[in-house]
Design a protein around this nucleic acid. Structure first.
Lengths: 229, 229
DNA sequence: GTTACCATCCAATCAGTGATTGACACCCGA
DNA sequence: TCGGGTGTCAATCACTGATTGGATGGTAAC
C-alpha cells in the first residue's frame, strides 16, 4: 500500500501549492500524459511505465496517486465524461412525468446523444473506448462508478411501461445500456488489413433500436420460440 | 516463429500415430487443461504457463501448438461452440422465405436459444464468457472466426424489413448480435461483496428486446431527438 | 542397416507488465 | 530549529506471453 493517499475522491485538498514548478498538479500531469498516450498508441497499448515516463515522473507515480492503472482510468473517465451526461439527464428525467413510448425515446436519446457527439472526435472515441473496456471487459461485475447508478432510468422506464415487472425493467435497461456502451466503444481499428472498418451506427438507428426494444410488448415467458420438432 | 506448425486449421494430419503414450493428442490435452483451469479459476486468471503445467507439458507447448494464447482460446471456442449453432441456424434460415417480424423473431430465437441453454451450466457460462471476451474486448475489430460470417442473417433480416437500407440492416444486426454476446457473456461474479450478482436475463426478454429493435420502424434520420432549447 | 529428415517436446530465456518498497528531499507548522 | 508528513525517486518483486536452440524419437529414403 502506498504511504498514504490514492483512493481519495477529492482530488487536491491543496495542502501545499505555491512552488514555482508545475502549474498543473502531478495528478493532472499524469492524467494528461495518459490521455496523450491513449490517443497516440491506442488504449490497450499503453503501460503505466509509459504514462509515468511521458509525464516525466518516476515509475511509481501512477501507483501513488491513483492506486492502480484502473484507478487512473476511472479518474480520467469521471473527469471527462460524467459532466457530459449530468445536465442533459437531469433535464430529461425532470420532463418525464407522463408515460408512454415517446417518453422512453426521450430518455434513450438523452443517454445516447452524448455518445454520438463524442465519437465525432479522436479524443471522444478514445474516451468511449476506454469507458466500454472498463465497464464491459472487467473480470467481475463492477458496482463502483456513477454509471452503476441506473436506478433513476429504471424508475422512468418502469413508469412508462407499467405492465412490465421490475425484474423485466431491470433486465431491459441493462440490455439497452450495455448495447450503447458496446456500440460506441468499439475498437478504433487504426490497423490496416482486416475488414474495411465497421463505423459507428447512426444515432437515429441506435435510438430507434433501443426504444423499440425497451418498449416491446410483454413477452409470453412460457411460449416456445422456435417451431422445431 | 515455431519450427513449423501452429496456425494449421486441420488439427492432426496423423503423421505418426501409434505411440503407447497418450490416447489424446497433445493438442487435446492442452485444450482440456485450459478448459479445466478456466472453469476452476475464471477465464481471466489463467496464464499459458498454468495451462502448460496443468497439461504436464513444457512452457512452450501452447505456443507451439496454437501460436498464442488467443489461438488456443479460438480453437477451444470453435470446437465447443460452433456445432451448437450450425444445425439450428441452417434449419431456421431454410424456413425463412417469407417476410415480417415473425420471421425475424424466429431468426433471433435461433441465435439466442443456444446461449440460454449454455448459461445453465458452469461450463457453458465459461464458454460464453470466453466468447464475449474474445469478440468484444479485442483491441481491434476481428474479422476471423466463423462468427464474423453474419451475412446470411443480414440477408434474412433485409428481406423481412424491405424498407430499410442495407446500411441500416448491417448496423441493426450488429447491435443485436453484440447485445446477445454481452448479455450472456457477463462475468461470472464468483466474488463476494459488490452487487448481489446480476443474473442472466430471461430468454423471452432477450428475444422480445432484440426482435423489437430489429423490426423497429425506419427512423427519420434528420429529426431532433430531444426537445431541448 | 544406415542415414537423413521432420514433427514434437523440452528447458532456458527474452522483453515486457503492474505493483510495491524503502529511502530521500522538501515544505509546513510547531 | 526541529519533527512530521507529503511527494518523489530508483530499485525491485512477481508475474505475464512469447521465443529460442537444442535434444528426442519415430519414419522414410537410400
Amino acid at each position: 500500500m502506498p504511504d498514504e493517499p490514492a483512493q481519495d475522491p477529492t482530488p487536491t485538498p491543496t495542502p501545499t501549492r505555491d512552488p514555482d514548478q508545475d502549474p498543473a498538479t502531478t495528478r493532472d500531469r499524469l492524467l494528461a500524459a495518459a490521455e496523450r498516450l491513449f490517443l497516440r498508441r491506442g488504449v490497450g497499448q499503453v503501460s503505466v511505465r509509459a504514462i509515468n515516463a511521458e509525464a516525466g515522473l518516476n515509475p511509481g507515480a501512477v501507483h501513488y496517486h491513483f492506486g492502480s492503472r484502473d484507478g487512473l482510468v476511472t479518474a480520467l473517465l469521471g473527469r471527462e465524461l460524467l459532466p457530459l451526461w449530468h445536465d442533459r439527464l437531469e433535464a430529461a428525467t425532470r420532463r418525464l412525468a407522463a408515460t408512454g413510448p415517446a417518453q422512453v425515446r426521450t430518455l434513450v436519446a438523452a443517454v445516447a446523444e452524448p455518445f454520438d457527439e463524442l465519437v465525432r472526435t479522436d479524443r471522444g472515441r478514445m474516451l468511449c473506448r476506454l469507458l466500454a473496456q472498463t465497464m464491459l471487459a472487467a473480470d467481475r461485475p463492477l458496482s463502483s462508478s456513477p454509471w452503476a447508478g441506473t436506478a433513476p432510468f429504471e424508475v422512468v422506464l418502469g413508469r412508462a411501461m407499467p405492465e412490465l415487472t421490475v425484474h423485466e425493467i431491470t433486465d431491459r435497461w441493462r440490455l439497452a445500456f450495455t448495447t450503447l456502451l458496446e456500440a460506441y466503444g468499439r475498437p478504433l481499428t487504426a490497423d490496416a488489413a482486416s475488414v474495411p472498418a465497421p463505423p459507428f451506427p447512426e444515432l437515429s438507428t441506435v435510438v430507434a433500436f433501443l426504444t423499440a426494444g425497451l418498449t416491446a410488448p410483454r413477452p409470453d415467458a412460457g411460449r416456445r420460440l422456435t417451431a422445431d420438432g
